[in-house]
């Protein structure tokens, strides 16, 4: 027990100062690497000089034209415009707050015909995890949803739930992320593991993700997520013009 309390003290001392680290988006490569490709994105940029992106989620704040938002769709649009000079990049965010995948899936045909996206960034899993719906059924619904998007002419990038340390013990997103990984592999599409990326930032002290009130972390985190997803799209679509950082 003495050993234990000594260790605990040491750890407490060591843990203190690391909090105030610089805000950098950097994460280890293995957290964001992908083997899947985005062929339709590559073709659309190279041939038509156009990139129409739809961000689909159940997040209340991710709704509307990206340039009217101060969240990651906006930063994603900016990043891609900066990197793809001469390409008309447009991002639209469609949110269906508090709806599970079964309800969202019904809207896919309408969204496809209205928005004509070449790339759909589909953030999902949070509502389902909070409600505890059957992970197996979730996987099946996601799989057919992705198939519908692909048949409708869009590439897909899946994004899982974010890391929310305050509510982490109340629901377990693990089974849903596992199903997303399964769909991403069988459908050969990238999965952006937002949960692990943010957890890395929290654990290394890059961002303090535990604040109860608005402390400006929102914009910083979304800036970084927008940038990392832009990186991923550039790589997976084999596009040159990546800005070196």
């Amino acid at each position: 027990m003495k050993m234990l309390s000594a260790t605990l003290m040491l750890v407490l001392l060591a843990a203190g100062p690391a909090r105030a680290a610089a805000d950098s988006c950097d994460v280890p490569d293995n957290l964001v690497e992908t083997l899947a490709r985005l062929p339709r994105v590559g073709l659309s940029v190279k041939r038509d000089h156009k990139l129409e992106i739809l961000v689909l989620s159940a997040a209340p704040k991710l709704s509307g034209e990206a340039n009217s938002l101060k969240s990651y769709p906006y930063y994603l649009e900016n990043e891609l415009r900066e990197r793809l000079k001469g390409t008309d990049v447009h991002v639209f965010a469609q949110s269906e707050p508090r709806k599970t995948i079964l309800e969202v899936a019904k809207d896919l045909p309408r969204l496809l015909s209205e928005r004509q996206p070449v790339l759909v960034i589909w953030q999902t899993g949070t509502v389902e995890a909070m409600r505890g719906i059957d992970p197996d059924g979730y996987g099946r619904a996601l799989d057919s949803g992705v198939a519908a998007l692909q048949n409708g002419g869009a590439d897909v990038v899946l994004v899982n739930q974010q890391y929310s340390p305050r509510t982490d013990f109340m629901f377990d997103g693990g089974p849903y992320t596992e199903n997303m990984r399964w769909v991403s592999q069988t459908r050969d599409i990238p999965l952006f593991n937002r949960y692990e990326v943010m957890k890395y930032w929290g654990e290394t002290g890059a961002f303090d993700l535990t604040a109860l009130k608005n402390d400006g972390t929102y914009e910083k985190v979304h800036t970084c997520i927008g940038r990392l997803i832009a990186d991923l799209v550039m790589r997976a679509a084999s596009l040159s013009g990546t800005v070196e950082r």
Partner: peptide, 19 residues
């Protein structure tokens, strides 16, 4: 949960408020 819910107002987690 009661503690977190009555103090939680970080806009980063709007979606998680649903819990």
């Amino acid at each position: 949960i009661a503690y977190v819910s009555s103090h939680f107002a970080n806009p980063l987690y709007t979606e998680e408020f649903g819990i």
